[in-house]
Simulated scan of single mutants.
Amino acid sequence: MTPVMEKQLMHACRTLFGQEISLSPEFLGYLQLSGAKSAFRLRAKEHHPDRFAEASPTVRQKQNDRFREIHQAYRLLQQFLSDRHRPCPRTSPRERTEQSRHQDIPKKHVARPEGAPLPKHPLEFGIFAYYRGKITYQDLIAAVVWQRRQRPSIGALAVRWGWLSENMVGMIVRQPGAGQRFGDKARSLGYLSQQQVDILLRRQRGLQQRIGRYFVEQGLLSEAEVVQLVQELQDHNRRVLRSQRR
């Protein structure tokens, strides 16, 4: 995979999954088409133009652009994931069978087996719960989308604080750049400084619900299990950071 293609795929993942997921080549490695499709359907439903038929022309245009961006991101990921799972004609059936045994890619609606090796880098709670075999990959995607819906957008916060106007927000959203984050676009246009973007992101994260609440409300985890997983996650991240400092 070329660096340019990897960057495009990362942008596509950011468009469908939001900023909560820690994106890396490893994320692309375990992403499946079923997971991308679920995220696409949720995101497309959230931004479908029919939901904004009575909105102002600026808002309708913003949602149309966002809807088109979501479709483009999904098509790119769909092509990548389909090609990845297409057998190479030079590989024998026996070799393909051996390769499939070693693929570390989650199956639809199936949690990873508890006790499977954890990635050797700091994790967030949802990813950690998945690797510990407590939730499925589909549960993780649904939780991330739920969490994202609970918080205000960066643009809305900037308008509330008087840093941007509604017209500026519309111009930023319409700025070309599939998968590029709102803050990056606003900074490149000169509407926000990097310091302002950082402040907005911190405030946005502070207003969002903890993802563990979703798992409890859906009956996927008990409160005691969430507390235990948080402790295990903290231990894991401390060990990883200590090993990186050596």
Rank of each mutant, 00 (worst) to 15 (best):
Q8P: 00
H11Y: 10
F27R: 12
L28I: 05
Q32H: 12
A36E: 11
S38N: 09
S38R: 15
R41P: 00
L42G: 03
P49W: 03
R51A: 06
A53H: 09
R60H: 08
K62A: 14
K62Y: 06
D65R: 15
I70C: 00
A73M: 10
R75F: 12
L77A: 04
Q78G: 00
S82G: 00
R84Q: 10
H85Y: 07
P87Q: 08
P87H: 13
C88E: 11
P89E: 04
E98W: 07
Q103M: 13
P106G: 04
K107L: 09
H109M: 11
A111M: 07
R112M: 03
E114G: 01
G115H: 01
A116M: 05
P119M: 07
H121P: 03
A129T: 11
Y131R: 15
I141K: 03
I141C: 01
R151Y: 01
R151A: 08
I154Q: 15
G155R: 07
G155F: 07
W161V: 02
L164N: 08
M168Q: 12
I172R: 09
V173K: 04
R187P: 00
R187Q: 13
Q195Y: 05
D198W: 01
L200V: 07
R202G: 05
Q204R: 15
R205C: 02
S222K: 14
S222T: 15
A224N: 12
V230N: 10
Q234T: 14
Q234H: 08
D235F: 10
R238V: 07
Q244A: 10
